[in-house]
């Protein structure tokens, strides 16, 4: 296929190539320093036994990987990651989309609403974790006090210390924090939805779920997939909010791969094994991210979406 560059004179092609290289350099440097170098480091660490101190750690080959697959706690943590991925992805998207649909037609005060919903997302996770830790406190916490005031004493518990509930308690905090992001993105996407199509479907007798499924969702699908990708991948790499609120406890009950990796690397000085666990997060999350990204691109090229 003939291209503009192919037909251009040699001098112009050279100039274009130079410009291309010039434009690619900043991104390449970012890739090298923030992706390839750390990845290279991680790969090196994963085949030695580095304790964080020794300058000459011994080469151990694939021992760290073998240990990882035989480690019961890895599977337990992966199970918690799976819970986090499913609930932590579905809940913000469902709640966020519902709120966005409610805000769609709102004219007065829509900026205020969006600001209120978005605010938790811009708060530092550490601050959120600390504040929600106070809310969940078994003795002084607002939640238990509120339950007591409502006569629901039977529901009072040490939310973050109860192995059955702790992970879900942290998840609620994360959902609260992340939903605002989904709301703002969906509200923006909904602005590009063809309202005439929605009205036409209404005249044709389509009910609300049908209108959402057949008319609205297809138009916002790329944005929907973008939010899905971010929440899904975030579920694999979740660390900060769990670390702040429970540290992976009690007795590993809320451990995910991220907290387990940190615990091994920095609390037990097993940097190499911790790094191997971190690589597992990458290996698991990259296919999802790439797959969803490809789907999003295909839909965009097909002209579907907002």
């Amino acid at each position: 296929m003939a291209t503009l560059a192919g037909n251009a004179p040699l001098v112009t092609r050279r100039a274009q190539r130079r410009l291309g290289i010039l434009l690619v350099i900043p991104v390449s440097l970012i890739m090298v320093f923030f992706f390839l170098l750390p990845l290279g480091n991680a790969l090196v660490y994963s085949v030695v036994d580095f304790d964080g101190i020794s300058a000459t750690p011994p080469f151990v080959g694939l021992d760290n990987f073998r240990e990882m697959f035989a480690d019961d706690e890895v599977w337990h943590a992966l199970g918690n990651n799976a819970v986090w991925i499913v609930i932590g992805t579905v809940a913000p998207i469902v709640i966020g989309l519902s709120i966005a649909l409610l805000l769609w037609g709102v004219q007065r005060g829509s900026v205020l609403y969006r600001l209120c919903f978005f605010l938790p997302y811009v708060l530092p996770p550490v601050a959120i974790g600390i504040v929600w830790g106070w809310i969940y406190d078994p003795v002084q916490g607002v939640l238990n006090r509120a339950l007591g005031a409502l006569g629901l004493d039977a529901l009072q518990r040490g939310w973050l210390g109860d192995p059955t509930w702790a992970l879900y308690a942290v998840l609620v905090t994360a959902i609260w924090s992340y939903t605002g992001f989904a709301v703002v993105i969906f509200v923006s996407a909904l602005r590009n939805v063809d309202v005439e199509l929605v009205d036409a479907s209404r005249i044709d007798g389509a009910n609300s779920p049908s209108r959402l499924w057949y008319i609205i969702l297809p138009q916002i699908m790329p944005v929907f997939l973008m939010v899905l990708t971010l929440t899904l991948v975030g579920g694999f790499s979740v660390f900060d909010i769990i670390f702040v609120m429970t540290g992976g406890g009690p007795a590993d009950a809320t451990n995910v791969i991220g907290t387990y990796s940190y615990n091994q690397a920095f609390q037990l000085s097993r940097i190499s094994y911790g790094t191997t666990l971190a690589l597992l997060i990458t290996i698991l999350s990259v296919p999802f991210a790439v797959g969803l990204n490809k789907l999003q691109r295909r839909l965009s090229l097909q002209g579907t979406g907002a």
Binding site: S28, M31, V32, L36, L37, L39, G40, N41, L43, V44, Y45, F50, I53, S54, A55, T56, P57
Partner: peptide, 20 residues
């Protein structure tokens, strides 16, 4: 090439400068 160079630099840099 970029990836390979990065890996080599990583290898060299991982434990360098840490003479205990």
């Amino acid at each position: 090439l970029l990836a390979l160079t990065s890996m080599v630099v990583s290898l060299a840099g991982c434990f360098a400068g840490g003479s205990a």
